[in-house]
Write a protein that binds this DNA or RNA. Structure first.
Lengths: 218, 218
DNA sequence: GATTTCTGTGAAGTCTATTTCACAAGATGA
DNA sequence: TCATCTTGTGAAATAGACTTCACAGAAATC
């Protein structure tokens, strides 16, 4: 697992450095910035997973900073530091795109909890939007392909025309099309003698499809 | 669970009736036929899940019967009764589409095991090719829709434009399109104040996606 | 060796999913 | 009240998935 990069933006030098220190002690890679403007310049290069930004700063404040970053980098989590723990502050921070906020007299642990929570959430969300899943799920979303998987799951290995006949499909090229798709997704493979069979990965997916069908019906 | 219907085709009356009796004793609904020809006429009406057919019969034998049935009803399992337990018989039976075979002096339990095994397999296969899965999987196979699910999974409830901004999508109608799709699949719902949230079913699917993504990466 | 069956490829057509655009009613805030 | 933001709808354009057709070499069978 890679070390997560965090950007800390606060004009208050003492606070900023203390935050940086806490985070570095906990094995994060941290970059401190004095102003939102400077942060914006560095952000592309640094590519942080998370930004902690103070709401009240000379020049651009956290509120103005938020939409700028979120627009270009929707995958960066932003924790806002608000001066007073008023409901207004919190709500308006969340509304303009902050993922979390810290009310200013905060403890070391408040900070760490918020940071970890948001990094976890990020990982969680990115896992779901992994692009590799697109193809696999699309591949499984076709009934003919699932039938082929089911058939191979039972018969262990089959040749092309056996599969075609077993499915009762009249046009063999149609089956061929779907076999290609399954092969491309590494769910089935073809050995020496042209026989098709499930890959280990394919076996797992068949299991998962059953799980799914149980959840769907429950 | 519904009672499974089984068709037994054998010209040998004693054998046929004894099979029928064994199966009926085990709570299957059984129809006996004397010839393959008669069976073909009844098959549509009876709609059995499984057929047990003797290989050697006057008139149409099991071998000729097999492809006829499998062609029109690929979802009916067929167990062939072969006179002699030669490898040839077994292999050629399987090749022409039999799902299983019984070598002729067989025991009551051999029969029941084979029947149950094949009915299980049928259920297994049909579960995988359930058509309801098509839509759900297709719905989940889109990255934007998964991102929406991930977001809602974290934020509990969000309004339309919040989601749109959170995803960094410029065209809100695009998001609307995917929200509709998710709603149609009962993964998200919209309450009183227009806020979107995951349905219980949606929560389950998010869980499922995580399981899946872990398998995919391992 | 001739013929049929098996295993495929590639192009063209069809059908479906997705995106984009133009527009609008209702809610909200200045 | 007027302007703006929210939350949509529906048509048209585009892209992608799936099917169908025409053909062909390799393997099996006669």
């Amino acid at each position: 697992m890679t070390i997560e990069k965090i950007m800390v933006i606060d004009d208050d030098r003492d606070l900023r450095e203390s935050i940086v220190e806490i985070l570095e002690d906990n094995d994060f890679s941290v970059i401190g910035c004095e102003t939102a403007e400077k942060a914006l310049q560095k952000i592309k290069l640094v590519a942080p997973q998370l930004i902690i930004v103070d709401n009240m700063m000379p020049g651009m404040g956290g509120m103005a900073f938020l939409p700028l970053v979120k627009n270009d980098y929707p995958n960066i989590k932003i924790i806002m530091i608000t001066a007073f723990s008023t409901v207004d502050n919190a709500v308006s921070a969340m509304k303009s795109g902050a993922d979390d906020y810290l009310a200013k007299p905060f403890k070391r642990d408040d900070l760490l909890v918020a940071v970890r929570r948001n990094l976890e959430a990020l990982k969680f969300e990115q896992q779901l939007s992994e692009s590799g899943m697109d193809e696999t799920l699309a591949c499984l979303s076709n009934q003919i392909r699932r039938q082929i998987l089911a058939t191979l799951s039972r018969k262990k290995e089959m040749r092309f025309m056996d599969i075609t006949r077993h499915l009762g499909v009249s046009d063999h090229t149609k089956v061929n099309f779907h076999l290609k798709s399954l092969k491309a997704n590494n769910l089935i493979s073809q050995d020496r003698k042209k026989t098709y069979r499930l890959t280990p990965h394919g076996v797992k997916m068949v299991d998962y499809l059953h799980l799914l069908s149980q959840r769907l019906s429950s």
